[in-house]
């Protein structure tokens, strides 16, 4: 075990760099996420937030730098191996198993918690059936937790947008994360949905899950975060408490341009492209 100062560090990102050809999307990014906190990663469109998520969760090979979670090195691992360490992410672009019911979506998310091997399944051992039963109960609990209990039998693709976003979180929670990475979870939600999402985030936190959040909704970011890291053109320009961030002149400058662009564009279509 490392010294005390390190002990409450869950995720350590050290000098992370990601290049796409000539473009440096993430540039020597260094920050920590502490156990049990909610840390928000914010920044204007194209700042490199999603790219950082992709690198942390194994969807992209970084061009340089280190990423460690609870002493384990994440660089070079596959996404599923990273999930097995308890690091689970959601996607910016809504991503559910569209052809499956909400209930089955969550069952699929429970994959990691199940232990049956292929042979046990093929031979139909009794333990398979009992585990299946437990998992079905778990799936129900998770659906209820995100408030989709009544939607269990709807197809994922048939749910309204806001509920699909909740289902994504349910799938991720089912995978038993100790660190949950949420990429713009409330984009496209209306204000009341956003408000209840914020409450849910509090509940998630009470479960002892550390949260790394990417979000454009500043009201939410300032409301839920313990700390905020601000990214602009791939580099961190500020790192501090919400109050500090709000007063930081660099951040204000970076965001002023952003707000103008946002109102002109009027919607999220372009960002998803």
């Amino acid at each position: 075990m490392a010294g005390k100062a390190n002990q409450d560090k869950a995720l350590t990102v050290d000098g992370l760099t990601v290049k796409f050809g000539g473009l440096t999307a993430v540039d020597a990014m260094t920050f920590d996420v502490h156990e049990g906190e909610v840390l928000s990663l914010i920044g204007p469109n194209g700042a490199g937030k999603t790219t950082a998520f992709n690198a942390i969760t194994g969807y992209l090979k970084p061009s340089g730098g280190n990423i460690a979670y609870r002493e384990a090195n994440l660089v070079g691992l596959n996404p599923n191996q990273i999930a097995d360490l308890g690091v689970v992410r959601t996607f910016q672009k809504t991503s559910v198993f569209g052809g499956q019911t909400a209930f089955d979506n969550v069952l699929m998310g429970l994959h990691r918690r199940q232990k049956q091997t292929a042979l046990e399944i093929i031979f139909g051992l009794p333990s398979v059936g009992s585990e299946e039963q437990t998992m079905r109960e778990k799936a129900r609990e998770v659906l209820d937790f995100v408030g989709l209990g009544a939607r269990a039998n709807e197809l994922g693709s048939a749910l309204p947008y806001g509920e699909q976003r909740l289902l994504e979180v349910a799938i991720a929670l089912a995978a038993h994360p100790s660190l949950l990475l949420l990429d713009e979870p409330v984009s496209g939600m209306n204000p009341s949905e956003t408000a209840s999402f914020m409450d849910m985030l509090g509940e998630i936190r009470k479960l002892g899950i550390t949260v790394l959040l990417v979000e454009h909704d500043m009201k939410m970011v300032m409301g839920v975060s313990d700390r905020v890291v601000v990214l602009n053109y791939g580099s961190i320009i500020a790192n501090g408490s919400p109050a500090e961030i709000q007063k930081n002149p660099d951040v204000i400058r970076a965001y002023l341009g952003e707000r103008h662009r946002k109102t002109k564009r009027g919607g999220r279509g372009k960002r998803r492209a």
Binding site: T57, Y59, N78, P79, N80, A83, D84, V88, R89, T90, F91, S95, V96, F97, G98, G99, Q100, D104, L107, M108, G109, L110, H111, R112, Q114, Q116, A118, I121, V128, E132, M135, I171, A172, A174, A175
Partner: peptide, 24 residues
């Protein structure tokens, strides 16, 4: 109807999402 088959279906439906929850 088991975790193995669900993993297969999950891969068919949405591979990035499947791997994000630990499906190999």
């Amino acid at each position: 109807e088991s975790r193995a088959g669900r993993a297969m279906i999950a891969l068919r439906e949405n591979e990035p999402l499947a791997t994000s929850v630990g499906v190999d």
